[in-house]
Write a protein that binds this DNA or RNA. Structure first.
Lengths: 267, 267
DNA sequence: TCAACTTTGTGCAAGCGTTCACAAGCGGTA
DNA sequence: TACCGCTTGTGAACGCTTGCACAAAGTTGA
């Protein structure tokens, strides 16, 4: 087992001096979640949130296998992290382990789900029904994990009304009304780069506050909107960097020629 | 403009005490790149590498628009980062700016491309020709950016020989020979989760050292293999967390009820 | 009941990455 | 040539994240 990187490893990139909306911890509590849970959630590092999602998936698998209890060491191994880090991550959401025993899998699952806000359904709208949009609309992983795809949009009038993955495509001009009607809380942009910013603006004005962007563009959004991006080209280029670095290291360490151009080197 | 997170923001997650192969900077140099460039490349933080890829895309757009010179402030704005960070990132690859003027766009492009190893072509193999695999095979962004898709694999014999995006699908059993023949350096896993680890093992034994994993599984690989993962479910759950946190904050700040369940709040 | 063993939860220190702030350097202008 | 304004490059401070190490707390078995 070795380096495992990527996805949303949590370093925040805020332009300007924008701070994460420092609301004072006052006022009468009136939510479904108790005050201390809210307080905790606010303090969880972004990096830890990403890992919690991974732990959750591993734990879900455990539940299916009938595992009822798991130690930090085991869970950490399965999730590909250090056990100390895992325990610290879990401590952010509370102390739900039993010393000398480990964690009750189901208890942990329910607490992580609560912290991640998965007790509520989050309707998703996919914009741009090209290759990727099709794949996303048909992707079974969304609905099964509490993210029902509630709407599809495209600019092509020929697609309007055509069902994809069981949901009829709406025209992009109807974003505002349809998103409001179906209470969409997450927008997924799978359009060509040229259209992405315009689509993003429409989603924002339709009240969508969370966006997952597959278009290779840096979106400009208001402060209160959360954007995450998945950029395949960037991922490939990071891998390319490592290929190059490796080849260079090999060229520097190994004597003359070996390790250059396709010869496999295993340090 | 506001929070822009995600993708490969560069926090390294290494299990155990694995260190990034600390090869001593000695031996006679024999690569295409000069020694100081190699030395630099080794020291670039992962997070900076991810951003360099973004800068590169922005700069490519600039070239097309005929821009010849750009200041750190402008480029930073377009890339959605702080200008100090941008300058530091660029300083990792060398001093190619002119004080009082800015950076020559084309010079910068060529240096970033060199550092990212984009002067060499990196052949890509996509494994798993389902919805996502189809989308990836047809995705124009890969070949145009120096990542030609050289091979497709699936376990379904009915697919074998069928061309997708112009490339015939090979059977998964032929991974080793085909990857070697076509000098594949990057493997993309787009299979169902159950198959991912097995596919990964085959890719590794075929000599592939860089893997982009779309399957929602934590892959176990040897130290010398670089894995990046793109996990849609995790991305969605991180967004979900922010939706929840926001709703909670609103519930705490706003008096009674407003902001809960779908009512749009703009701080 | 007590001792031995196991595993959690966390204070603390080290390591990275980000941000600040400013000296150094370059082009333009008189 | 000397000055001025602008922009880069970077040392240093800061803050977040990680990893270590250990006390606290629970279980098991005699």
């Amino acid at each position: 087992m070795a380096a495992q990187r990527g996805e949303g490893d949590g370093v925040v990139t805020r332009p300007q001096g924008t701070s994460p909306a420092g609301t004072s911890p006052q006022g009468t509590t009136n939510s479904e979640a108790p005050a201390d849970v809210r307080e905790r959630a606010r303090a969880i590092p972004e990096a830890a949130v990403a890992r919690l999602a991974v732990y959750l998936r591993v734990l879900s698998g455990m539940v299916e296998q009938g595992v009822t209890t798991i130690s930090s060491e085991e869970l950490a191994g399965a999730a590909g992290v250090n056990s100390a880090k895992l325990r610290k991550d879990l401590s952010y959401i509370g102390s739900y382990g039993t010393r000398g025993v480990g964690y009750d899998v189901e208890v942990l699952v329910s607490h992580i789900e609560r912290i991640l806000g998965l007790t509520r359904k989050h309707s998703v709208a996919v914009v741009g029904i090209g290759n990727l949009g099709h794949a996303l609309a048909n992707y079974g992983g969304f609905p099964s994990r509490g993210f029902p795809v509630a709407a599809l949009f495209d600019i092509d009038p020929d697609l309007t009304g055509v069902p994809v993955g069981g949901i009829p495509v709406d025209h992009i001009d109807d974003i505002t009304t349809v998103c409001a009607e179906r209470e969409v809380s997450i927008g997924v942009i799978a359009t060509p780069p040229q259209a992405a910013q315009a689509v993003c603006d429409r989603l924002v004005s339709a009240g969508v506050q969370c966006i997952l962007n597959f278009a290779p563009v840096v979106l400009q959004v208001p402060d209160y909107v959360e954007v995450r991006k998945v950029d395949l080209a960037v991922e490939m280029q990071i891998l390319s960097f490592h290929v190059a670095r490796r080849a260079d290291e090999a060229a520097g360490d190994v004597v003359n020629g070996i390790g250059v151009d396709g010869v496999v080197i295993r340090p």
